[in-house]
């Protein structure tokens, strides 16, 4: 099996039972992606597969053969943090830090979804061309990522600061 992980080709020969999460954590030495429930209920294991956020705990690694996966290790490292990572630090968008990689990967996926104009359950006009990242939109879209420390306010602030402009920019592109 061959995957591109954080831009690097990796080969792995694992049991078909192995989840993408365990492949990353136990076999590839990438423990930045976290295991919080192993049943798709907490979002700590969120990674980006071809740019889309997924729960890697529910993904059998074999299903992702040939795909591109981005984990938190590919988002940014200390000294070269992604703007969203910096905003998480600035806004204290975490306490224990365990759900944090999942929150960050999820927010990056969410920003891409918003850019594509995908609606959410709280979107008033389903047919709208662009959707503003309101407080409700952001919270609904991030509700798949639990934070038991309760850093939700800081997470929301960090995401808004980093991605608040997306809808506006997408609108401008449409207009142009």
């Amino acid at each position: 099996m061959r995957l591109t992980i954080n831009g690097r080709q990796v080969e792995a020969d694992v049991d078909v039972r192995t989840s993408l999460l365990d492949l990353l954590r136990d076999h590839l030495g990438l423990p930045g992606t976290k295991k919080g429930c192993n049943q798709g209920a907490c979002g700590a294991c969120t990674v980006l597969a071809d740019g889309e956020r997924i729960n890697s705990c529910l993904a059998l690694a074999v299903q992702y053969d040939g795909r591109e996966v981005t984990t938190i290790e590919g988002v940014g490292a200390p000294g070269a943090l992604h703007p969203l990572q910096r905003a998480f630090v600035e806004h204290d968008g975490f306490q224990c830090g365990y759900c944090t990689p999942g929150q960050i990967c999820s927010a990056i996926g969410m920003a891409a979804e918003l850019e594509r104009g995908l609606p959410s359950y709280v979107t008033g006009d389903l047919d709208a061309e662009t959707i503003e990242l309101t407080h409700d939109e952001l919270r609904e879209r991030m509700s798949g990522n639990l934070c038991r420390c309760g850093a939700y306010n800081g997470i929301v602030d960090a995401i808004r600061e980093t991605f608040g402009q997306i809808a506006e920019d997408a609108g401008k592109r449409e207009a142009a």
Binding site: G40, G43, I54, N55, S106, Y121, R141, G144
Partner: peptide
Amino acid sequence: LAGASAQIRN
């Protein structure tokens, strides 16, 4: 959109 989470819907 009322179901599950964005990750699961993906």
